[in-house]
């Protein structure tokens, strides 16, 4: 596997992108507003990529906010109760989410798509109900509790440091996913996704691979959740909200399901659109616009924005002949 090939235009594009990502804060460095948008964008790129990784195994989840929130709660409880530094508890948040992910995965591996979707959809809602009722003495119920920030605000340029920290984590996550998908594990996952019976016949036991995909996806999602919490410095059960389950799906579908670049492109495009609509003063209407966008993309561009150049080329060719 080659990490970089200077003749491949996609690789050149990617490098250009990376350089841009590293240079952008130097240009807009003084604006806290834009830096915050960029940091959240990166966190959601991590989150959407993690969600998308699950679809490589032919599974889907309608409730990834459960892992996002559980990671956030685990990490912040560690940070608050034990006083550990945020960067350490981040990993713990991921591990806790992965543990729960594997447990949910265990019930899900044998299920058909509909039931899998129902279980994951219900899981996030029920976790939220438990957090605000049964677990309220620990979690503070609906009120939540304050959490130390990833980079203490006393350090000058703390947002800038945070940006680069999150950027490095995002790049690492995407490289790991790339490595996993190009390895034998990725091949096995693709075989299971395309036809589980045939994969079995070829000697691949789908269960450990599906669980692995669930665990890895939940782990990275937990880290993304912890990052978000440590960015805001506050955690409430709203983190389990339906919209937090839907964002990674919307990002991945808009960008293109089943591709590594899809969630990245999707997150950037939708986040910019979202903040643009916000600037226009639309509150509920922007959700409606995003919903309509999702429906339109599924109907008219099922392979997402990444496939747009190819589709246009096909259209043009069709017209010429």
């Amino acid at each position: 596997m080659k990490l970089f090939d200077s003749r491949d235009p996609r690789h050149l594009l990617m490098v250009g992108f990376l350089v841009l990502a590293f240079l952008i804060p130097l240009v807009i460095g003084s604006s806290l507003y834009y830096l915050t948008i960029l940091i959240l964008m990166l966190i959601f790129i991590i989150y959407a990529s993690a969600w998308n990784f699950l679809t490589f195994s032919g599974q889907g989840s309608l409730g990834h906010a459960a892992f996002f929130g559980l990671g956030g709660y685990a990490a912040s409880l560690m940070a608050v109760k034990l006083g550990l530094p945020s960067l350490v508890t981040l990993v713990f948040g991921g591990c806790f989410a992965a543990l729960i992910g594997v447990l949910i995965g265990l019930t899900c591996v044998r299920l058909r798509e509909w039931f899998l979707a129902m279980v994951t959809f219900g899981f996030a809602v029920i976790i939220q109900t438990l957090i605000v009722s049964q677990l309220a003495p620990v979690t503070g119920g609906w009120d939540g509790f304050p959490v130390p920030k990833l980079v203490p605000t006393t350090i000058p340029g703390y947002l800038m440091i945070e940006y680069y920290l999150v950027l490095v984590i995002a790049i690492a996550v995407i490289l790991i996913f790339r490595y996993l998908l190009q390895s034998r594990i990725g091949l096995a996952l693709a075989a299971i996704r395309e036809n589980e019976v045939e994969a079995r016949a070829a000697g691949i036991n789908p269960v450990p691979f599906k669980l692995f995909a669930f665990g890895v996806s939940a782990f990275v999602t937990g880290i993304a959740g912890s990052l978000e919490i440590f960015h805001f410095g506050y955690i409430t059960p709203e983190i389990f909200g339906i919209d937090l389950s839907f964002w990674p799906i919307i990002y991945s579908i808009t960008g293109g399901l089943g591709t590594l670049s899809g969630p990245i492109v999707g997150t950037i495009v939708v986040t910019l659109l979202w903040d643009g609509l916000n600037a226009l003063g639309l509150t509920y209407a922007r959700f409606i616009i995003i919903g309509v966008l999702l429906v339109l993309i599924i109907i008219f561009l099922p392979r997402g924005l990444v496939s747009l150049p190819e589709e246009i080329r096909k259209r043009l060719k069709g017209r010429r002949s």
Binding site: L62, E113, I242, I288, G291, I298, I299, P302
Partner: peptide, 28 residues
Amino acid sequence: RPILGTGKLNEIFISLGLIYIFQNLVAL
């Protein structure tokens, strides 16, 4: 109707868009 038979994931994900549209239309 436009996506019937194009794959289960599509049929699941399209209802997410509908949830967004309905909830916020009513909230609006």
